[in-house]
Design a protein around this nucleic acid. Sequence first.
DNA 1: CATGGGTGTGACCGGTCGGTAACTCTTGGC
DNA 2: GCCAAGAGTTACCGACCGGTCACACCCATG
Lengths: 207, 207
Amino acid sequence: MSRGQVSRRLKETLVIDICGKARPRERIVETATSLFRRHGIRGIGVDAIAEAAGTNKMTLYRHFGSKDELIAECLRHQADKAERKWADLEAAAPGDPLGQLLGWCRLAAEFLAREAQGCDLANTAVELHEDDHPARAVIEAFKTAQRDKLASVCRAAGAAEPELLADTLHLLIEGARVSRMSVGPGGPSARFLTAAEAAVRAAVGAR
Amino acid sequence: MSRGQVSRRLKETLVIDICGKARPRERIVETATSLFRRHGIRGIGVDAIAEAAGTNKMTLYRHFGSKDELIAECLRHQADKAERKWADLEAAAPGDPLGQLLGWCRLAAEFLAREAQGCDLANTAVELHEDDHPARAVIEAFKTAQRDKLASVCRAAGAAEPELLADTLHLLIEGARVSRMSVGPGGPSARFLTAAEAAVRAAVGAR
DNA sequence: CATGGGTGTGACCGGTCGGTAACTCTTGGC
DNA sequence: GCCAAGAGTTACCGACCGGTCACACCCATG
């Protein structure tokens, strides 16, 4: 009664307006990702996620089996999204690895200035404490892949020590994101771009 | 009954053997710190903390009022401990700020290799999501103070851009600690010392 | 028109959580 | 030896958690 009066058709329409996705599965992933971000993985319940996604707990469990699997799925989505960014970088500066590297620095700095949250993957790694959690493999694979991609671009750009430059840039961005969560955007993370560009310049010489 | 048979005197003795502290308040802080580290702040209950500290929930609440206040107190302890390290650094290389800076790099790298956990303060910043949580002020003050101390040493060491060097080193160590939690000690965090020393060398010149 | 897969609903389970109350016991300082 | 302060014990509260169940429902496909 009361809220249940609204016809199912109308409710779905409302949800589509809010979230832009018709199928429950994707609505759940999208909604869960943003709720995990806002409240932390342990800070939001599956019931609240399902309701916010305009569906219910049963449908959620039918799709994902457990909250832990839902977490892993959300991270997989985020990882895919991040990996697709490299294609944009290559498209923006084709055949110019140094340009791609500097583009990566600029893109990371923009994201840092715009978005309050840190990296979902890294944050989850901090929040989870079970070694066998399904999300752990996703996190490790993603972080390793990101660093390796960075290293290959550094190598192509002719850096003196490409592995060291890649690790340095990786540590800088990772540190900037976590620092932003501790002291906000006015802290050391504001100097990320300057620090990163200096590291690149030192390794490949002035442009 | 059963477990309660052991006299209070004996129980306290056992706890002293385990934890090295006689007074409940300090045992609780010590125990809570290590349990928060192992299970996460939301992953361990006050009851379990009290029991592990060889006391009980009522005593815990009489001392700290709430779990949130206990969290803040634990972080305060950790912050104090970390701030005391700077005195050791100064004592090891008195009047030699560059030596202190390199000593800081080496100390951080050693800690990184030895301890699996990241920074308790930073991890808590990631885990907590309430803006008005009592721990937030502790975290922000500590992180800011650490960066400022780093900056003053960089300045004394004659770095070309002391603020930038301090931010760079801060981002590197912060990134190394969080990276270690994502991909373990074999990842980019293993290159922290090399990257940090390179940054110092570039700003101060060869030693 | 029939059917079956995806979906919605509401109730329920056992467990855990942070926090409180009332009472007893122990101990150190006077 | 007394007494207050600190500490221990037990039970309890209401809320919420992840997860399951049985059942009704809608709608596209045949």
